[in-house]
Design a binder for these strands. Structure first.
Lengths: 341, 341
DNA sequence: CTGTTAGCGCTTTCAA
DNA sequence: TTGAAAGCGCTAACAG
């Protein structure tokens, strides 16, 4: 790769100047002034030879690689990883940086390996990303340089980027309250593990807190709360079926994520109920299925692209050692209506 | 980052040997034999100092960076990008390599930039990936070194990795034939643009070819073929509604991808028809929704993880300059049954 | 068997 | 204004 690339020495020779001079011209150094004509000659030579600096060589001197490590637990399983990465890539490109991406698969050995691999390559900083919003402890090895936590926080005080799930919880509840839903709102997706263990999830607790705040302010309480062992369609389906056996039918459902909502839709369809005429549904994440469902599912979007971008900004432009919350926009779709009757 | 790292010189000094000796011991060179005791001293010193070689410095001499560029058009929009990357990451790690990932967003300027960025960093090779299977022309700049096309082919003869869509087409059709479906099979998702322009898609044509081969062999012809301008749920929905207005109802539906099938499910549900008792459905991709649907959607999986892996293998272990087809496994789920009656 | 020397391509004193 | 020389950390010739 990149055989036969012209070197700085080639450019200097062609321009009839020293490497030093060529280097200074090409790097636009202010201090020492070379004649305008020398500038010309250097630029012309570089142009003609198609010169591009060898960044590995440069970094040996400058100790800067213009390369950031993006270390994450899992890139594939979640649909959202791509957006996190894309946002980071965009912001990195704008700053002339590049991303070295590794995946630990939640495995300590792989993690160790991944971290050594990127540190050996002298990256300028590390973005340590979790695919589920949670608290974690960062491997000490990366603390030798700039670190930003993405979709995670840690006991060490470090800059971090998180979605604002609590505010999202309030938006979701308020969206229903504004439509006139009061005492027939049910919640699907309570989960002790997620709510109680910040190392499993921060989202569950924050969303719940937001929902309850908004409801309390309106002096409304939930009609029912369904616990689910996982946030998958089948659990949403089962929960919804359960709700429909109760004497009082809910006028609106809040699901803790879109996959649960998808399951709830299936149960409603089978029961011959229509969204939103019979029951409104709203949830969290803005998974692609939310837009594909009929009717479209109202939800609050995980701002993954923004978050990836923010992480790079904090890393490169500097940022305070505390969580930076990114708003989750409410996507209003047809699954919302005033309560029937 | 990585300040205060011990250097080879530190190790050599501590071991009381020359840098050369230390280098040879640490790299396990066969040629020159140092005393067993010298080995011990070097290893001990390296261990104690937590020595790790500076790969940027090494690459300056060896012209190898143990870094591969993964240049793709779009990482985010498609759900599958993650799997492609994950497969590549795994295979790279097994070979002690790391991935520099960039995204061009299909924009020529970004692409130019991305390619220069990775070449400047002296990558050992480039994986040039497309998110939709298609034919493309690779930017000449990367032809100076090893290149593998991922999910794409090109007029230049280069090693490439593609899913075996044609064989998948045959599996899909055969799965229905085996169940006894004959002259009431309908196809949703024909699309002239995708079928006729290899730079848009190679999958559509190959899938169609496979389907038709299998049907021809069984002397069966399609009951109906629906054209769709895009392969999205809404188009599958519309197509399915159209099919249900015809005099003869199909016994089985082949959808060109899972999103179309999702739309078809919705139309079937609204029409009060049951999958698979009334109509069987099968499709392509194995999008996560395929498993979430009720009943589970039978489909042929895009082997993206395998493909990413294969690309790295071809790049690093060497491979012939021709397409390498990766099989698409059939996922049998509950959406298949013998024709009713 | 071991060590010295010379770069890889670049930036950066420092001297002319 | 310009250039020579040193050196980043490593490996590869080549002598000892």
């Amino acid at each position: 790769m990149g055989r036969n690339r012209a070197t700085l020495a080639d450019v200097a020779r062609k321009a009839g100047l020293s490497k030093t001079a060529a280097s200074m011209v090409l790097n636009g150094r202010e201090g020492t002034r070379l004649s305008a004509e020398a500038h010309q000659r250097v630029f012309a030579a570089a142009e003609e030879l198609g010169y591009r600096p060898n960044l590995a060589a440069r970094s040996l001197r400058t100790r800067k690689t213009a390369t950031i490590a993006f270390v994450s637990d899992i890139v594939a399983t979640t649909r959202f990883a791509g957006d996190l990465i894309r946002g980071a890539l965009d912001a990195a490109r704008e700053r002339d940086h590049v991303l070295l991406i590794t995946e630990t698969q939640g495995d300590a050995t792989f993690e160790q390996y991944a971290i050594e691999a990127v540190l050996d390559r002298q990256v300028d900083g590390v973005i340590y990303a979790a695919m589920a919003t949670r608290r974690l402890t960062v491997p000490p090895a990366i603390l030798g340089g700039p670190v930003v936590l993405l979709n995670a926080t840690s006991p060490d005080s470090l800059p971090s980027v998180l979605p604002d799930d609590e505010r999202a919880g309030r938006s979701v509840a308020n969206a229903l309250l504004e439509l006139g839903h009061r005492d027939a709102i049910a919640l699907i997706g309570r989960n002790r593990l997620k709510e109680d263990d910040p190392e499993v999830s921060l989202a569950a607790r924050a969303r719940l807190r937001g929902i309850q705040q908004a409801l309390n302010e309106a002096e409304v309480s939930l009609l029912a709360e369904c616990f689910c062992t996982e946030w998958l369609p089948e659990h949403g389906y089962a929960a919804m079926r359960g709700l429909l056996t109760r004497p009082k039918r809910p006028s609106a459902i809040i699901c803790m994520n879109d996959r649960l909502a998808f399951g709830a839709y299936q149960a409603l369809g089978e029961a011959g109920l229509t969204v939103p005429e019979d029951i409104s549904v709203i949830s969290f994440d803005d998974d692609p299925i939310a837009a594909w469902l009929r009717p479209g599912l109202a939800t609050t979007a995980l701002p993954h692209e923004q978050m990836g971008r923010r992480a790079v900004e904090l890393l490169l432009d500097g940022g305070v050692a505390e969580p930076s919350l990114v708003p989750m926009p409410l996507r209003r779709r047809r699954s919302l209506a005033p309560p029937a009757g």
